[in-house]
Design a protein around this nucleic acid. Structure first.
Lengths: 216, 216
DNA sequence: TGTAATGTTTACCAATCGGTCAAATATCCG
DNA sequence: CGGATATTTGACCGATTGGTAAACATTACA
């Protein structure tokens, strides 16, 4: 008889690690493309190459699958913001934050869409994470930015909306990829679009936050 | 016996207009909040206050409902971009485009989320609209912006990515509303956040696109 | 008013949903 | 090896899905 699932975390076999990995990889594929409600366990099972009851042997419910996936991805996803350094050069910190976020949009679009789907539909499964860890991290970094503006290192601006605008502009290239490709057309939708975006965003943010503006 | 639905468009009764309006209003509520796949006809029926077969009397399928809704909303949604005036003052045109897009995010968040859900999940129902009408409109306006940069009226920049960044930053306040509220916290998440955002975005875009920058 | 057209609902359908179960199979370990 | 444990699956369950059929109710109009 199989061990009760509650005890599984105590000792994990090689197979457990592999299969859970395999399932979460497939779940990322499906959940990020269709959202939680739009996804079915059968679809995940097919992508994972296992039977449906087999998935449910490792994760008791669809919700448990989703939650495990969120938990696994959230920490990594916030890494660039966490790397924001109060002691660094403000302009360079912002520049590199934009660059890293853009790289993540390019290299991990599924992760971006996973959260986008979730937040877009009211964040029913991650509300606590948003109001807790995320808010705390943003509050901390907003204070860093505030210190920079107060000391005159960058133009005075609302740090929260600055962070929002960096999030939105960079993640746009993952979340709205189909639209970006459609608008750019076949000729400009190659991988070069990320370099064009990087160039533009750097110009936008560095220019927009620079102090030496001639008028208000 | 009811008239075949194909003939309905020939002569529309008062009841038809009212009920179809009522249904699409409810459909906007549901589709924008849960995406196409995550929505059910029963949910729309409940919001509309009618029975499910009654909905299906006016729209043969769930897809038909969705399509009618998209068609009805898309034109309005692109209105601000269409208003972009080649003969206007560049800075003022961009400023007012941002303002209008932000107003739409505030006043019509459901419409924004409707498209966001759709695009995020690969735009399976609006791919043609993206590659056709949308791309043409953006191409046209990109040409206008290009003329402004060429003639030195605003800083040289990629017009497509400029438009993308205005879309993403403004729509962020509709699509990711829950996250914005969560991060801002109860004290700053009032309606004032749209004014704060407007102030910030104006500063960002006008500053970032201004010519008088001291270095590259 | 009468009746034909339009509108609405109850009952229902097959397909699919998330999830269970027991039996079958594979793996581990002494 | 052999038995205990861990893994996998086919068959199945009740609930929900999108959609239909037909009876019933209402409206428009001669």
């Amino acid at each position: 008889m199989a061990i009760p699932r509650a005890a599984k975390t105590l000792r994990r076999t090689r197979i457990q690690e592999e299969k859970e990995e395999q399932i979460l990889e497939a779940a990322l594929d499906v959940f990020s493309a269709r959202g939680f409600r739009g996804s079915t366990i059968d679809q995940i099972a097919e992508v994972a190459g296992m039977s449906k009851p087999n998935l449910l042997y490792y994760f008791r419910t669809k919700e448990a699958m989703h939650r495990a996936l969120i938990d696994r991805v959230l920490y990594t996803w916030l890494e660039p913001l966490r790397a924001f350094d109060a002691d660094g050069n403000p302009e360079e910190e912002i520049r590199s934050y934009i660059r890293r976020k853009l790289e993540m949009a390019r290299d991990f679009p599924r992760e971006s869409r996973l959260f986008a789907n979730e937040v877009l539909q009211g964040a029913p499964h991650i509300e606590d994470e948003l109001k807790g860890p995320l808010k705390e991290l943003v509050d901390e970094k907003a204070e860093v930015i505030r210190a920079w503006t107060k000391s005159g290192k960058i133009a005075e601006c609302d740090p929260y909306h600055l962070i929002f605008s960096i999030w939105s502009t960079t993640q746009h290239y993952a979340d709205f990829d189909v639209q970006v490709r459609a608008v750019l057309g076949q000729e400009h939708a190659g991988e070069g679009r990320f370099e064009d975006a990087a160039r533009f965003l750097e110009q936008l943010f560095i220019g927009g936050l620079r102090l030496d503006r001639s008028e208000s």
